[in-house]
């Protein structure tokens, strides 16, 4: 079987250019069905490269569902069906010839609840590079782990306890460990599904700071319930409601001058 050679498309982080507002992810007419339930209705959106895009909306509006389409995590749900087209760097990710495992290496994910493996901190981060063969030696692997922990702002806190269990960390540290784990496989996109909903405000602030730094090198898509968070961290915001993408635009515009009545009602707290 001939897989598209993804590695040639994966430009190295350091040499990546940073042109403004070039669409990294292009979604057109995406529909998602859970059995008979039409969960996402004809969503089309562009996610610009190396920026933070926030998906907001009330619970059950389909924003997480859409996020999980981007790395085809919905494939694991047997009754889930996706139609439409999602392209990353102009390549259709639902192309049958595309290897979903390679895709997920390009599109990392951070989940709502911190979910480190019940293994050591080092193993948590090293697992991804190891299965993808990113390190040719033990030293190289250690280097990847340390730099990933550094990028996730966790290196100082765990330097002396790399072999403690990942589950022994605090909630905020665990979430940053999960971010480090995602970074370690050198993805282009990081999807974050309500990454701060289980964290206290201080830990949340740290993650938000981290996102600010990470967006220099990664395209970040975040789903959040907190409108303040969306306003703080994102450059673009998309508002979902009942499976429909209601409004999408720059964060400033969506929060200060929403075009749609529903968006306005939501961000002013009328419902949700």
């Amino acid at each position: 079987m001939d897989m598209p050679v993804l590695s040639t498309m994966r430009s190295d982080l350091a040499t990546r250019l940073k042109p403004e507002a070039e669409a990294k992810i292009v979604a057109r007419d995406v529909n998602v069905f859970y059995g008979d339930k039409h969960a996402l209705k004809s969503v089309s959106v562009d996610v610009p490269d190396r920026s933070v895009m926030a998906f907001i909306g009330p619970s059950g509006c389909g924003k997480s569902t859409f996020l999980r389409c981007i790395n085809r995590m919905n494939d694991t749900i047997p009754i889930c069906r996706v139609t439409g087209k999602i392209e990353i760097d102009k390549q259709d990710i639902y192309d049958p010839s595309l290897d979903v495992v390679q895709l997920r290496a390009r599109v990392g994910m951070v989940f709502q609840k911190p979910n480190p493996f019940p293994k050591s901190i080092f193993e948590n981060v090293a697992y991804g590079p190891r299965i993808h063969g990113l390190a040719s030696s033990k030293g190289e692997l250690e280097q990847i782990v340390m730099s990933s922990l550094e990028k996730a702002g966790l290196d100082k806190e765990v330097r002396d306890r790399l072999h403690d269990s990942g589950t022994s960390l605090s909630g905020g540290q665990q979430q940053r460990l999960c971010i480090a784990r995602a970074i370690a496989v050198n993805p282009e996109i990081i999807l974050m599904d309500e990454p701060c909903s289980a964290l206290d405000p201080i830990a949340t602030a740290r993650i938000e700071e981290l996102m600010e730094e990470l967006k220099e090198n990664f395209t970040i898509v975040i789903v959040t319930h907190s409108m303040q968070q969306a306003a703080r961290v994102s450059q673009r915001t998309a508002f979902f409601h009942l499976g429909i993408l209601v409004e999408e635009g720059s964060t400033d515009q969506v929060f200060t001058n929403p075009k749609d009545k529903r968006t306005q009602d939501y961000i002013t707290g009328r419902f949700g």
Binding site: G128, R181, A182
Partner: peptide, 8 residues
């Protein structure tokens, strides 16, 4: 999910 998320 975590394992799938890092490309396992």
């Amino acid at each position: 999910e975590a394992a799938l998320g890092v490309g396992a």
